[in-house]
Design a protein around this nucleic acid. Structure first.
Lengths: 351, 351
DNA sequence: CTGAAAGCGCTTACAG
DNA sequence: CTGAAAGCGCTTACAG
């Protein structure tokens, strides 16, 4: 038989009685019914001015903080929203998470973060955890779930999803123009005179990786520069693969004067590979990344990259969620891709 | 008067009826009382084998998932633990958060992450948010709260805190040996023959920054190398300050052959500053960091650094919390500091 | 070993 | 405008 230690009665801590004050105590202090307190709290009905005043007085006197747990059980809303991200530990998602936290908190919601690890099953599980906790809505960053699953989920509660375009009731999607960004980066290189531009692909599992590759190819095609399969190397979005890609290119003796990595992490890796082989950047080879991670500002040389507005994306997603939760549908515009030129790119060296 | 749209009755989604199944339905299906189901679920009493079987059957038939919200209200425990971190968006805390999430989930708890932004007031607020949500315990990474506040908090619920040594009932603290790590790094440089070792300090608000500085000074003293105030430059733990520090040193014409930055972010910044001034690393100047961030593996050159076991710290913290929650006090040992030598350090150049 | 009952702290029809 | 009552889904003494 399992014996659990009896919970020790909480010792009240000075200035921290939140735990003890209930709506009933407030009601008693203000000489009204709990219902009335609740209505004032939620703006759920008109209450006479004097009662409002009395209740507000009592609330501040007692330091009352409503219990979201009870609220969730009774009223259906918990004022919390689930955020499924791929990992908590990513230079890329970090800023978005920060943006979400910032805006959600400002709107009075508590975010519940949970990781899906780029895995549909885990994601599904994370979502059921969130739903069990009765979150009012779910924000999913680059969800792995199918469109159908997302649409079905949106029948249950409001959903905001990034990284794909999807139209459905009770759901808003936020999609960055990866194609356009990649196209712009490639064009920039082309403008600098580069013709042999290597491309390190991202993980093909990611829609954005594919889009970026399309952008690269598109720009080449538009300018009449033939794409060369030897210049396209598979990467996986991680630094190491960028290093490997460049090393392989060099070993195979493929001629290239620029490399466009589908994300900054690989671009950083590429920089290292080139350094190891004593290829100078940007004198001999230009390098361009995608995402504009914070660290790219301090790489050697500082990295030219397509800025991806992660923080803003997070903020937009959170705002879209607040709107949905209030029954509005906010129309929001993602910022356009923007190339940030730093020192890793330069003119094509004379042959 | 505020009118809220009536909640639309949830459309059941195939395979996702979690929301609808309650303990009563399970009880009915298994032909027992809800109490019994609860007891089986919580292992809170011995139940006859056949009932257990019937209940387990019903649970899996119906796909029942207990509602943690109701559980929290009724039983006092929510199976969630609050995690206050300084920011969600940090190369440093990320790994720790991941470690915490991993272990907490494995132990059956849901983590609630929230940021304090290095600010005691915000931290305090975050903690009250967590308590309002009835978390069962709180893990605080490098809390800004005073020891007293933490001890007081621990009277209310289990607390695990990193970044300081603190003895108190219902509280466990996890402290990395910053002094030892810094001492080791300095000694390594000393062993390489360096005598003019610049030190870029961290934010003096951080205890660990101070410890690291002490370690630097300590090693110097032990080896009879006089500390030179001109070699100690104030930083703030961010990249930019590392760059500035090095630039200033160079401009002032201070002689140094090595720089020890109190964290990797500043070391990376220092690398950039040296690059800008065409000082080669490690031929002319060696650079050593602290934390061993992921990105340091791909800096140019790859950074020698004191490894800080962030992931493990997170895991240990989570395990300590589970233990506390079960009434045990786990005794855990933080990994020792370990210098990871890469390519940014080399022998002191001949004068 | 197991039920019936009360209660956790709120919200929300239902009646005034 | 405002109360009393029921109920959200569980847990836990209290009695067998």
């Amino acid at each position: 038989m399992i014996r659990r230690a009896k919970p020790v009665p909480p010792t009240p801590v000075p200035g921290d009685q939140a735990r003890l004050v209930t709506i009933d105590m407030v009601a008693r202090a203000a000489d009204v019914s709990p219902s009335t307190v609740s209505r004032i709290l939620n703006g759920t009905a008109v209450v006479s001015a004097d009662k409002v005043k009395a209740v507000e007085q009592a609330i501040s006197d007692l330091g009352y903080v409503p219990n979201p747990v009870a609220r969730g059980l009774a009223g259906g809303r918990t004022l919390s929203v689930g955020v499924v991200t791929q990992t908590l530990d990513s230079p890329f998602y970090g800023a978005a998470l920060r943006g979400i936290e910032m805006e959600l908190l400002a709107a009075g919601y508590t975010p519940l973060f949970i990781s899906g690890h780029w895995n549909e099953r885990e994601e599904q599980h994370s979502i059921s955890v969130l739903r069990a906790r009765r979150v009012d809505g779910i924000i999913a960053l680059d969800a792995r779930l199918s469109d159908e699953a997302l649409v079905a989920l949106a029948r249950e509660l409001p959903v905001v999803v990034t990284g794909r375009g999807l139209e459905a009731p009770n759901l808003v999607s936020l999609c960055f123009d990866n194609f356009g960004g990649a196209r712009e980066a490639t064009n920039y290189l082309l403008d600098l005179g580069h013709r042999n531009i290597a491309f390190i692909t991202g993980d093909p599992q990611h829609q954005d990786a594919l889009e970026r590759q399309r952008g690269y190819l598109g720009a080449l095609a538009e300018r009449g520069v033939p794409a060369d399969a030897k210049l396209i190397i598979a990467g996986d979005y991680r630094e190491h693969s960028g290093t490997q890609a460049v090393l392989r290119l060099l070993k195979q003796g493929v001629h290239f004067t620029a490399v466009f990595a589908a994300n900054d992490q690989m671009a950083l890796g590429a920089l290292l590979g080139l350094y190891q082989r004593h290829v100078s950047v940007p004198q001999q080879v230009s390098v361009i990344g995608f995402d504009d991670l914070q660290v790219g500002q301090f790489s050697i040389p500082p990295l030219t990259s397509v800025h991806q507005p992660s923080l803003e994306t997070g903020q937009l997603a959170a705002r879209a969620m607040s709107a949905l939760l209030e029954g509005r549908r906010s129309k929001l515009r993602m910022p356009q891709p923007r190339l940030v030129v730093r020192e890793s790119t330069g003119p094509c060296p004379a042959a």
